[in-house]
Each structure stands twice: as structure tokens, then as C-alpha cells.
Deep mutational scan, measured.
Amino acid sequence: VTTYKLVINGKTLKGETTTKAVDAETAEKAFKQYANDNGVDGVWTYDDATKTFTVTEMV
């Protein structure tokens, strides 16, 4: 189990959260659900070296 981080660069919501998951795919599903629940829709990137997902909403 690995800890993954999500950085949110939203128009109205900004911040970070973490989740523990067995792999990046599982973490991504959890983060996308979290973003969807919070009304964040944007471009996703993932950095495997730092285990960090970033979602950026276009203005």
C-alpha cells in the first residue's frame, strides 16, 4: 500500500489531499471521484516519481 497525493488547482477549490491505495490506478479512481464530488473538472497529470496526481481546471 502506497500513499498518493492529489494537488487540486481548481477555479474555486485549491488544495491537497492524500489517499492510500494498492496502485496508482486505484488512487486515480478515488481522486477522480473526490474531484467529481467537489465539482472539479480539469486536466489530469501524474508524476510517478513523487506519486502525485494534479488536476488543473482551465479558466
Score class of each variant (00 low, 15 high):
Y46V: 01
T17L: 12
K32P: 00
T18D: 05
A49Y: 09
T26P: 02
W44Y: 02
Q33Y: 05
L13H: 10
V59C: 13
N36Q: 09
V59H: 12
G10P: 03
F31W: 02
E16M: 11
K32H: 09
G10I: 14
G15Q: 14
E25L: 11
M58E: 10
T56H: 08
N36L: 13
Y34V: 04
V7G: 02
T3P: 04
D41R: 14
L13M: 13
T50A: 08
A24M: 14
T2V: 13
K29D: 05
I8H: 03
T3L: 13
T18G: 03
T56E: 09
I8D: 01
Y4E: 00
G39V: 03
I8W: 09
L13Q: 08
T50C: 04
T56I: 09
V7Q: 07
N36K: 15
T56A: 05
F31A: 02
Y46N: 01
N38Y: 11
W44P: 00
V40K: 02
V40R: 02
D37A: 14
Y34A: 03
D37G: 05
G42S: 02
N9H: 10
A49Q: 12
A49S: 13
T54F: 08
Y34M: 04
D48H: 09
G10W: 06
E16W: 15
D47W: 03
K29Y: 09
Q33I: 14
D37V: 13
V7C: 06
T54C: 05
A27G: 02
A49R: 08
V55R: 01
Q33V: 11
V22Y: 10
K5H: 10
A24I: 12
K20M: 15
F53T: 00
D37K: 11
T54D: 03
T45A: 09
D47F: 04
A49E: 13
V22L: 14
L13S: 06
A49P: 08
D37L: 11
T54E: 04
T56V: 08
Y4G: 00
A35L: 09
D37I: 11
V43M: 10
N9P: 03
T3K: 11
L6Q: 00
N9M: 13
D48I: 12
A24T: 10
T52L: 04
K51N: 07
K11P: 09
K11L: 14
A30N: 09
V40N: 02
G10A: 11
K51D: 03
K5L: 07
T2W: 15
T17G: 04
A24Q: 12
Y34D: 02
T17H: 13
V43H: 10
V43Y: 08
T2R: 08
T17D: 03
Y4Q: 00
K29Q: 08
D47C: 08
V22M: 10
V43I: 11
D23E: 04
N9C: 11
